[in-house]
Design a protein around this nucleic acid. Structure first.
Lengths: 121, 121
DNA sequence: AATACATATGAACGATTGATCATGTGTGCA
DNA sequence: TGCACACATGATCAATCGTTCATATGTATT
């Protein structure tokens, strides 16, 4: 669908659209940003991230906490690793995961504030 | 899968797990939070929210900006309305959407800061 | 009332996702 | 070297998602 075949657009609208398009971050960057939020957008990953905000944890510990299989957790950790939300260190056989930086805990807390406010309506 | 059939857990781990479980927000709340972030986790919705952070916009305007059909945008706005990220007002035939509160723009900006930092490595 | 415009909505369909199962890799210990 | 433990990974499958198409609703104008 192209812009041309859209029905009558008031000229004021056309101007507004151009202005906002100039200010908008480019689409690639917004896709990256959406990708970041997608990582927070699943209950399992959300619980993992929240748990890691308290302490580094090994894979089996997380699996036990979430009452889920080690495989499921490992897949999700792999996802979180890819988008660089978590890092890990090996100690013998066990691997400890932790949040990649403190910024992430801040994002979690801010989101929690938001839903808290909504609930207070 | 139950906790019992998991292999040997060091007792230190068991204690840590119980402690974190006590501190964690309850699962229902975390699911709501994940639901909020899922709304940010799609490129189309992300672009819509970003555009609305500059100005309220009518549906056709958004569709033109995104170069997408009115129907697709309308569906996504419906989603965003459900999770209360946007609100709307009617003016004659056209309906103007806007961010539900300024908090949301802050969340967007914070996410952008985060990926900016990652890119700077 | 009839028409045009702006938006909403239900059904359908391909694409993606998250969990599972089976198996592979890596580490430590006897 | 052989075995057990901790974790990773590829394939598979049901469920969910995002878009499209067709159509419905709501509002002004004539």
């Amino acid at each position: 669908m192209t812009a041309e075949i859209l029905s009558t657009q008031h000229s004021e609208h056309a101007i507004l659209i151009r202005e906002i398009n100039k200010k908008m971050p480019d689409t690639r960057r917004l896709e990256t940003l959406a990708g970041l939020y997608r990582a927070f957008g699943d209950p399992t990953r959300m619980r993992i991230l929240w748990a890691l905000s308290y302490s580094e944890l090994c894979v089996n510990c997380i699996a036990e906490m979430m009452d889920m299989t080690q495989s499921a957790i490992s897949h999700q950790l792999s996802f979180l690793k890819q988008v660089r939300l978590v890092k890990f260190r090996r100690d013998g056989k066990t691997i400890y995961y932790s949040l990649n930086d403190s910024h992430i805990a801040t994002i979690l807390a801010q989101g929690m504030d938001h839903i808290q406010e909504l609930a207070a309506d």
